[in-house]
Design a protein around this nucleic acid. Structure first.
Lengths: 227, 227
DNA sequence: TGTACATCAGTGAACGCGCGTTCACTGATGTAC
DNA sequence: TGTACATCAGTGAACGCGCGTTCACTGATGTAC
């Protein structure tokens, strides 16, 4: 049973207002969203992702999304404010998936499995990008353009990595790490990691395979964090 | 004397065609650009840069540029195909300025002045970004969106850095650098450098000063290249 | 020095496309009794 | 089991804004003689 269904079966409260915690289950015109509605909503999201991949955010049109879903533009506006709102919802979904990558950082990277753990993290991150390239690219572009909503979604998604790395650096006993500002270094490494994940296939044109990119990136991160 | 003036005083060739090397001095409707015209062209570029800074490329309108220059939109179209064409011209101008940064890489970074040279390079690069933030941001956004013209301009501008770093890594005698793919590592480091230059002021909110960012970034680059 | 001519430079006003968005409506589904 | 009612869901068609772009034109400048 979906949350939508659940809400649907709940009696309205005395003044007709709904539980504020469930406010996300209201359509934008104030209707409650039932099972059928939430299926439509996710079909819209699926189509949005497909079109986004094909044409990019600048040419993403509500009319095209609606056509590809097989509904009227008016239906789209029941669920989303505009096309960027739908993309934001996609970015939020996708953002969740970084959490498992944070697990590699609870291993001691100075230990015998350290370099391998770093490599697993990088490899996982690149695979994550390969799976969601269009949405992640768009999220980052919007964030870079200054859109606060997308910045927050991005920061939240990257937090397991950023904080994991910053912690490692700050706890590092080595002499070399004294000069590093942990948070700045972590931000730098994550920035590098993201760009490599985004563009690794471009580098193949210059003779660096996907594997080379992963190895190289992991090595830089690992050695910076454990120096 | 500007190239425009020079052309202006040249006699037309027999068939009325002009030297193809001077084709950039023709307006888009085929007229030759004289002194007055090239002054107008650069006023348009100046206004474009100002507006770009204020509103970003997505809200950059030909009409607004024209108004701010004090001319008609039709005049704009004498010199540029559209607003992105003007931004491209700006990006080309600004791109030239990375050349001096490449000089720091002709120093031996393993030597006593190595770490300082790396720091000077990073510091110079951050200052370069501070001076041209709006144009560089826009150039990179367009490049990331896949616009080939902007990719080329960006790659050309970064080439002194990318190639300098790749060369250093490939010539490095150290054991650790054997695992690095020089070109991939150079691309990774430059990516990191760019993002730090772009966002260093954002990091101040997290307690990392501009100086911390420069030091940290320089350290990561230096130690990766000389390991 | 003056005049005719070629060429460079700039423009006002409008056309028209493309898309976002909404309105007033019909249809589908669930529930109470 | 049937019927009335409330509520959820979806829509066709159109309005209208905002901007890119162009046309047919006037004005400015330089040059030949």
């Amino acid at each position: 049973m979906t949350p939508g269904e659940l809400l649907h079966r709940m009696p309205p409260t005395q003044d007709g207002a709904r539980d504020p915690l469930k406010v996300q289950d209201l359509a934008l015109d104030g209707r409650a969203i039932g099972e059928r509605g939430s299926r439509t909503r996710s079909r819209i999201l699926t189509s949005t992702a497909t079109i986004l991949e094909a044409v990019g955010i600048n040419d993403l049109r509500v009319v095209d999304i609606a056509r590809s879903v097989g509904c009227s533009p008016a239906t789209f506006y029941q669920y989303f404010r505009d096309s960027s709102d739908a993309v934001l919802a996609l970015a939020e979904q996708v953002g969740e998936e970084t959490i498992p990558l944070g697990a590699e950082m609870r291993i001691d990277w100075r230990g015998p499995d350290g370099a391998a753990a770093a490599r697993r993290m990088v490899d996982g991150f690149v695979r994550y990008w390969d799976a969601h390239r269009a949405v992640l690219r768009t999220r980052n572009l919007a964030a870079q353009e200054g859109d606060q909503r997308f910045r927050e979604v991005r920061n939240r998604a990257l937090r397991p990595l950023t904080e994991g790395l910053a912690l490692m650096i700050s706890e590092s006993p080595g002499e070399g790490s004294k000069e590093l500002t942990p948070y700045a270094a972590a931000a730098a490494l994550v920035a590098m990691l993201e760009r490599m994940a985004e563009f690794h296939s471009d580098l193949e044109g210059y003779g660096a395979s996907r594997d080379d990119v992963v190895t190289t990136t992991a090595l830089i991160i690992h050695s910076t964090v454990t120096r």
